[in-house]
Design a protein around this nucleic acid. Structure first.
Length: 289
DNA sequence: CACTTGACCTGTCCGC
DNA sequence: TGCGGACAGGTCAAGT
């Protein structure tokens, strides 16, 4: 679901459209989707101009010129879709694309810029939009705890290994999913990178060699970069800022590939449960040690 | 401290 | 056809 490559793809899209736009009106219909609305929204968002769009971990940051920033987390089924008025045909048009039919029943927040709108859709309502003073953004609990960006230039294999070894007794998959160790990895890229590095997801970190972790570091970065290039993974809900799906799933080697042959050895990919998550493994390539 | 479970939600699928 | 239950998986809180 939306992990680092998906959120980064949305950021790239929104960066093309949002800077310079002025928020004319904010609509929302579900308190938990926008917890500090409406009081602060009237004061610090309506009338504000968007300065820039950034990302940290799986969180999008839309900075406003009122010294406030909108933080957005898509969680599992969130979408952020930008629609320009001139691109719409109207509901019911033969071109039945998503953008012609928004808002729909999953839409919970709309930022209206007059000539265009940004729709926050979220089928399961786990995601949220928050308005926070820009200076306080680094001090929110999540950002104080979250680990380094895996695609940052200074994220060396040495740093990666040092951080993973803080959880020597845990299984490697739980550690990859732990946002305080490394930011941005979720279920898809944990499974894909562990397969690429030939590591069984239940292996304790202490039983994995530095050489293996160095391979995992390289494979993880390559996979995240490739996925961004392909516009992320669309399993069910995910779309980019223009309402379009990502194509990385067609490059995935194990995720949702259970009962199909492993591309490396021909054995059959299995689906099991590790760390409470659906987990995909090649039983021949990935052996516990 | 490591690890698991439940909560937050809705849609889909499977078995009866 | 409908109905109950499992499942999907990001994050946090609470429990073992």
């Amino acid at each position: 679901m939306p992990e680092l490559p998906e959120v980064e793809t949305v950021r790239i899209g929104l960066s093309k459209f949002l800077p310079g736009k002025t928020i004319k009106h904010v609509w929302h219909d579900w308190p938990k989707s926008f917890p500090n609305a409406p009081a602060d929204v009237q004061q610090f968002a309506v009338g504000a101009k968007i300065v820039l769009v950034a990302r940290r971990a799986k969180v999008l940051l839309i900075e406003l010129d009122t010294k406030y920033t909108l933080l957005i987390h898509l969680k599992m089924t969130g979408q952020l879709v930008f629609v320009s008025n001139k691109d719409r045909f109207g509901a019911g048009h033969p071109n039945d694309s998503l953008i012609n039919n928004l808002p729909d029943k999953t839409t919970h927040v709309v930022l209206d810029f007059g000539d265009s709108k940004l729709f926050f859709n979220d089928q399961r309502k786990f995601g949220w939009v928050k308005l926070i003073p820009t200076l306080e953004v680094p001090n929110i609990d999540f950002f104080k705890k979250v680990g380094p960006e895996p695609l940052a230039a200074d994220f060396t294999h040495t740093k990666f290994i040092e951080r993973l070894r803080r959880r020597q007794k845990s299984n490697i998959k739980s550690v990859l999913l732990d946002q305080t160790i490394v930011a941005g990895i979720g279920n898809i890229y944990a499974d894909e990178s562990l397969f690429a590095a030939c590591i069984h997801p239940e292996t304790r970190v202490q039983n994995i060699t530095d050489a293996q972790l160095k391979v995992l570091h390289k494979e993880l970065i390559d996979i995240l970069k490739l996925s961004i290039e392909k516009g992320g993974s669309t399993d069910k809900n995910y779309v980019n800022a223009e309402g379009k799906k990502g194509s990385y799933m067609s490059f995935a080697k194990v995720f949702r590939k259970e009962n199909t042959p492993c591309q490396r050895c021909g054995d059959i990919i299995i689906k099991t449960r590790v760390a409470g998550r659906g987990t995909h493994i090649c039983p021949t390539c990935q052996v516990k040690n």
